[in-house]
Amino acid sequence: MIGKYFGVGVGFKPEHFQNIMESQPDLGFFEVHAENYMGDGGIPHRMLGALRNQYQLSIHGVGLSLGTMGNLDQNHLHRLKSLVDRYQPALVSEHLAWSSHDEAKNLLFLNDLLPIPYTQETLDRVVEHVDQTQTTLGRQILVENPSTYVAFSDTQMSEIDFITQMQKHTGCGLILDVNNVYISANNQKMDAFDYLDSFPTHAVGEIHLAGHAEDVDDSGERLLIDAHDRKVAPDVWSLYRHVIQKTGEITTLIEWDNDVPDWPTLYHEAMDAKSLMIELGADTHAAQ
C-alpha cells in the first residue's frame, strides 16, 4: 500500500491567502517551498501558521542539494529541521537534483534543480545525503524524480534503476512528478508509459502535476521546459490517469509557481484531479 492519503492539494501562494481563508476550500493540504519560510518572522510565518491550523502541510525543499558531490550544507539542513519541527507537516520532500556546491568552503548556490549523471558514485552520494537528511529530521522524506534537459556521457544506469536503488537503500518515499516524467520522456527519448510502469510506485507518497513550456533543442527537436506556469497539459492528465488506474488513491498536488493564476483557476485544477480520482473509484477516504 502506498503512503498515507492526504487528498488533493495545491502549492500555496501568498496572493491566494485571503481567498483560502474566506472560502475554506475542500482541499486535503497545502504545499510550500521550505526556503520561503526560513525567515525569522513576519507575514510569511503568520500565513503558514494560519494554514497549518486548518490544513495539513507539505514542506517541499528546493535548496538542500541532495545530489551535490560535495557535502550537504549542515546549516541549511538544520534550518529545514527547525521548520519541520515548528510546523509538523504531513509530508517533507526534496529533489533528486543539485543546486549548490561547497568547493573551497565557499557555498555557491545556483537556485535551480540541476541534473546528475546516474552512476554508482552519484548514487552513493545521494544515498548518503538522503540518509543524513532523514536521520537529522527524524522522519522519512519523499524524493522527487527530476525533469531534465541534458544527458551525460558518464551515465551508467537508467533513471528508474537509480531511483529504485536510492529508495531501497534509504527507505525514503518518493514524489512521482508526472509532469516531470512527461518532460523527461520527451527530452530523453523515453516512453513515458514504460517509465511509469517500471517506477517503484509502492514507495510513492505524493504525485505532482504542473504545466510545462515548449522549446526546441540543438537539432531543432521539441524540448520541454518545466515551467510551472500554466495548466496541466492533456497528455500529462492521461499519464496521471494511467498511474491512478494502477495504484488507486495517491496524495496529489497541483503546482503553479510562475504566472500564478487567480484562486478559482488554481482550485479548479485541483478539483479536476479530485474528480479523476473519484471517477476511477480511487478517492475513497480523503483525509480532512
Partner: peptide
C-alpha cells in the same frame, strides 16, 4: 564536457536552458 543529448551528441543549447533558468 560530457553534457550531451540522448544520442550522445554535445548539446550546448540544451545546457543553455540551465544557464537561462539560473
Amino acid at each position: 564536457n560530457g553534457v550531451v543529448d540522448p544520442n550522445g551528441v554535445a548539446a550546448p543549447k540544451r545546457y543553455s536552458v540551465y544557464k537561462n533558468n539560473v
